[in-house]
């Protein structure tokens, strides 16, 4: 069962997975390109850190994008068939959802591996100044966690109907609207800030996306 599910999802997500893998492989290599040139003198440590950090912003973006697109692709065949075919298959629904989730998560192993390989190559080829160190495995593990968190969140949202997605969007929109009204009325209310603290700060569910994503650090 898992094999056919994986194959079906591969057909829907292969372009996303391939492009994501290429991007995941290229990103660490590009981020240290200045330091990797053997003919030029090594970059100063501060300059290298600044470069690596500026490129590092793209890792969580790539992770979120991959999670979103693969989650959508996981449910596309069922959404198109209005879930009728899926619901008449002789498996409990929780198992069907688990099969879809497992297949999507496994497909994401390709871009995660690409990030790991890219990061290892980049660390190996770069002339890292004294006092700095490469963290390819840590970066890849963090990328893997971020991709899986994004995939899980978007998988849950896109499993629902358009109405469910509408409710989620309406909730977010409602919070924003209350904040805007509070600002206009000069009421001391920082709803968005508090929400950001809860969601994006440790141990918030999306804390993995924030902070510095450094392939090379002190």
């Amino acid at each position: 069962m898992f094999r056919v599910m994986l194959y079906s999802q591969w057909k829907w997500s292969r372009l996303i997975v391939l492009l994501g893998s290429v991007a995941g492989f290229a990103l660490p290599i590009i981020s240290v390109q200045g330091a990797a040139r053997a003919d030029s003198s090594p970059l100063q440590a501060a300059e290298l850190l600044r470069t690596v950090q500026s490129w590092g912003v793209l890792y969580p973006v790539l992770a979120a994008t991959l999670g979103l697109l693969v989650a959508i692709a996981s449910w596309t065949p069922d959404h198109r068939g209005r879930h009728v075919y899926a619901l008449v298959l002789p498996v409990p629904r929780w198992r069907y959802v688990l099969l879809r989730f497992g297949a999507g998560a496994l497909l994401l192993a390709a871009p995660i591996t690409a990030v790991l390989v890219g990061a290892l190559l980049a660390s190996w080829s770069a002339a890292i100044p004294a006092g700095l160190q490469g963290y390819p495995v840590a970066l890849a593990v963090r990328f893997a966690l971020a991709v899986l968190v994004a995939f899980a969140v978007f998988f849950a949202v896109s499993a629902g109907t358009a109405r469910t997605a509408g409710i989620v969007l309406a909730l977010i929109g409602g919070v924003m609207l209350v904040q805007v009204i509070a600002n206009v009325a000069r009421v001391d209310l920082d709803l968005v800030g508090k929400l950001q603290l809860v969601v994006l700060n440790w141990p918030g569910p999306l804390a993995i996306f924030t902070g510095r994503w450094m392939l090379i650090d002190v």
Binding site: S8, K11, G81
Partner: peptide, 21 residues
């Protein structure tokens, strides 16, 4: 209405269905 996966071929559709029965 036919509700099958539109990008699977006939053979792949059979294999997908067979795996569940």
């Amino acid at each position: 209405q036919p509700h099958l996966d539109p990008i699977l071929t006939v053979r792949e559709t059979l294999a997908f269905h067979a795996a569940f029965y």
